[in-house]
């Protein structure tokens, strides 16, 4: 899910940077000082978790946890994910530096959508139902990330259907794993610290 440099066109990369900048600006504007530690910790968790690969031929896939990021951070997912991906690109060469905007958009837009769709429902539900919403958010965010990446590849004249099928096929197990992890975390937080699930914006 980390696009390297040179795979997408300059136009697609530039447009992604524009969307990424707007998202980061909105995220930073709505961020309250009391929630900065949560943004930092979530970025650190995202940074570590997206480094774990699950071998799955022909390549390998990794956890995303952008659904969880969206539920916890809302629009602040943009700066959190940007920082984590920037460090991965610089330290490990995972994803290109020029493609950083695209990678941020691919993971942050689904995070914001899932946050908008599920965070209020999670807040107003019983723990068991909140965990189910968490699963849905985790799985949907991975699905939407695949669609976003296929759309960027489509903008680069690489077609849409084939990359989308390859991505969705490879990430089907990730949807379940991401959903399960998100469900567990959401259920846990709902039970012990529900105020953490209050959206930042």
């Amino acid at each position: 899910m980390h696009l390297p440099d040179g795979v997408i066109s300059n136009t697609a990369a530039g447009a992604s940077w524009a969307v990424c900048s707007a998202g980061v600006a909105i995220g930073l504007r709505g961020m309250k000082s009391g929630r900065i530690p949560l943004v930092g910790v979530t970025a650190a968790v995202f940074f570590v978790c997206t480094l774990i690969a699950i071998p799955l031929p022909p390549a390998s896939v990794h956890l995303l946890l952008n659904g969880l990021t969206g539920i916890l951070l809302g629009w602040a997912s943009f700066p959190a994910i940007l920082v984590a991906l920037a460090l991965q690109a610089v330290q490990f060469g995972h994803g290109g530096v020029f493609a950083l905007g695209a990678n941020t958009v691919v993971m942050s837009v689904p995070a914001v959508i899932c946050g908008a769709l599920f965070s209020r429902r999670i807040k107003n539900s019983q723990t068991r139902r909140a965990a189910i919403y968490g699963f849905a958010a985790g799985a949907l965010s991975v699905f939407l990330s695949c669609i976003m990446q296929a759309s960027l590849l489509c903008l680069t004249d690489r077609g849409f259907v084939t990359p989308a099928m390859v991505l969705l096929g490879a990430h089907m197990p990730v949807m379940f794993i991401d959903g399960a992890v998100t469900a567990w975390v959401v259920g846990f937080l709902h039970r012990v610290k529900p105020e953490m699930l209050d959206r930042l914006d």
Binding site: H2, P4, A44, V45, V48, C49, T50, L51, I52, A53, I54, P55, A59, S60, V61, H62, F92, G93, H94, V185
Partner: peptide
């Protein structure tokens, strides 16, 4: 626990670049 699960995951599992 979440950090440890990530950090101490077996060495071969660090993700992935083709």
């Amino acid at each position: 626990c979440l950090f440890c699960a990530g950090i101490f995951f077996p060495g071969r599992a660090w993700a992935h670049k083709v």
